[in-house]
Amino acid sequence: DHWHVHIDGERIRLDGASEEFIRTLEELIRRGTDARELKEIIKEYLR
């Protein structure tokens, strides 16, 4: 599956992301997590 998110107007691909990770991201977004912080979390995950 190819997922991607838009954060700060930037399109970030989440290739190979699990549904669990996507749900976690959605939860963080709902909580109002800062965009820079979200991008860091995604970069760490994709390593």
Rank of each mutant, 00 (worst) to 15 (best):
K43S: 09
E40P: 01
I41S: 02
A17I: 07
R13M: 11
E27I: 11
E37F: 15
R47E: 09
I29R: 04
R47P: 05
F21P: 00
E26D: 09
K43M: 14
I12W: 12
I22G: 02
D8K: 04
I29C: 03
V5S: 02
E27D: 10
L25I: 12
I22A: 04
H4P: 03
R23M: 10
W3S: 08
Y45S: 03
H4L: 08
A35N: 07
H6D: 15
H6V: 15
G32E: 03
G16K: 06
I12N: 01
E20N: 09
I22Q: 05
R30Q: 07
I41Q: 04
H2S: 14
R47V: 10
L14G: 01
H6Y: 07
I22F: 07
I41P: 00
G32N: 05
D8Q: 07
G16S: 07
E44P: 04
D34M: 11
I12R: 01
I29Y: 06
S18L: 04
R11E: 15
I12K: 01
G16D: 07
L38I: 12
R47L: 08
I29A: 03
K39I: 09
K43H: 11
H6S: 11
H2N: 14
D15I: 11
G9Q: 04
D1R: 11
D34S: 14
E37C: 06
K39N: 06
D8E: 11
H6C: 10
E40D: 08
A17F: 07
I12A: 01
K43G: 09
V5E: 02
I42P: 00
G32I: 03
L28M: 12
I7M: 05
L46Y: 14
E26Y: 14
E20K: 10
I7G: 01
L14R: 01
I7D: 01
E26H: 11
V5T: 08
E37T: 15
A35M: 08
G16M: 07
D34H: 12
E44K: 11
I29V: 08
L28K: 05
G9F: 04
H6K: 09
Y45E: 03
L28S: 03
Y45G: 02
D34I: 06
I42Y: 03
Y45Q: 03
H2D: 11
L46A: 03
W3M: 09
L46G: 02
I29F: 07
I7V: 08
E27R: 11
E10L: 07
A17G: 05
R36A: 13
I7F: 04
L14F: 06
K39F: 14
L28T: 03
I41C: 04
E37M: 13
R30W: 10
K39W: 15
F21Y: 03
G32S: 03
H2G: 05
R31Q: 11
R31H: 08
E10C: 03
I22N: 02
E10F: 09
L14W: 02
I7R: 00
L28Q: 03
R47H: 10
R31T: 08
L46T: 07
E40M: 13
A17S: 05
E20S: 13
K39D: 04
V5D: 02
L25C: 02
W3R: 13
R30C: 06
R11S: 15
D8A: 08
L14Y: 03
L14N: 01
E37P: 02
D1G: 14
R31P: 00
T24M: 12
W3A: 09
E40S: 11
E44H: 11
L46E: 04
I29G: 01
H6F: 07
G32T: 02
R31I: 09
H2K: 10
E40W: 14
F21S: 00
D15E: 13
R36M: 12
F21W: 06
L28P: 00
S18W: 03
K43V: 11
H6P: 02
H6L: 14
I12H: 03
E19R: 13
L38R: 00
E40I: 13
H4R: 02
D34C: 09
R30E: 07
E44F: 09
T33G: 05
